[in-house]
């Protein structure tokens, strides 16, 4: 907790319980307000521009019941998972290989860092041209978008490993493999998790965007196809489901991060 916050508390001596209550009520009110705003907005804008929340909910329930929505979710998640596994695998293994080759690392590092700047989404048409319209171009996109944050985090994590711990492990007789596994890997786990928390939601969002551009299944296809058919309710339903999927996965990642990094002294708050 930041010191500023406690300074603010001193400045405003409101009873804590009362404030908790106010926050909860405020959140519920704001949520209702947003829903009401959506409803009114939909009524004013007309069905072509905004779908009524009730209709969207009904559509989601209907499509779930018929199984089509689950099929789309499955397709998107499958794509995201495979692409994630590929990107994440390369992102973790490559820095460990480079660790043994300092000269090569120094030579290729500036090019890898420069390639971070290439807008990956813009490569999709090229991937389609090269790899056809099946899963391959989408996997390339998801894989690349996952690869970069993971690679950068692991790469920097390896560099950041405390030399003193490595020396200690060498002195007590640990092999290079044991050092990689025990000292290096554990040291960079927080970095790795931070990158996963960026990469996993990004993988899903990349899968959806790739489906906008190519293919005939998945959440992205659902949204874009509905838009092209002026089915605004379909667009909204797709967007709501996509957002929900990403947010749920975000929440799971937060829990996992806590669990695996329990050894860390302070539970981090969001201060940078």
């Amino acid at each position: 907790m930041s010191t500023t916050q406690s300074a603010l508390d001193l400045a405003e001596p409101t009873p804590v319980r009362w404030r908790q209550y106010a926050v909860t009520v405020g959140r519920i009110l704001l949520a209702l307000l947003l829903l009401a705003g959506w409803k009114v907005g939909a009524d004013v804008a007309g069905p072509l521009y905004a779908a009524d929340p009730v209709k969207v909910a009904r559509r989601i329930i209907e499509d779930t019941a018929s199984g089509t929505l689950l099929r789309h979710i499955y397709v998107t998640l499958r794509l995201a998972t495979i692409g994630f596994a590929i990107g994440c695998g390369f992102g973790v293994v490559l820095p460990f290989l480079l660790r043994r080759l300092p000269r090569l690392t120094a030579a290729v590092e500036p090019y890898i860092m420069a390639s971070v700047g290439v807008p990956k989404y813009a490569l999709v048409p090229l991937f389609i041209l090269w790899f056809g319209i099946d899963d391959a171009p989408k996997l390339w996109l998801v894989g690349l978008l996952v690869f970069y944050p993971v690679f950068i985090a692991v790469f920097a994590g390896i560099r950041n490993v405390d030399r003193r711990l490595i020396n200690m492990a060498r002195v007590v007789g640990a092999s290079e493999a044991a050092i990689s596994r025990e000292v290096v890997w554990n040291s960079l786990l927080p970095f790795f998790f931070a990158s996963l928390r960026i990469a996993l939601p990004r993988a899903i969002s990349a899968a959806i965007i790739a489906e906008f551009l190519v293919g005939n299944e998945g959440l992205g296809f659902l949204i874009e196809n509905s838009r092209q058919n002026f089915d605004t309710t379909g667009v909204f339903a797709g967007v709501v489901v996509s957002t929900a999927v990403v947010l749920v996965i975000n929440g799971v990642l937060v829990r996992l991060d806590r669990y695996f990094n329990a050894w860390r002294p302070v539970d981090r708050d969001m201060d940078i």
Partner: peptide
Amino acid sequence: NPGLTCKIGYVTQEDNLLPWR
């Protein structure tokens, strides 16, 4: 050959315990 194949132990200035263990 750090530690000379476990013949020399070294208690360093910092404790250098593995923080995750």
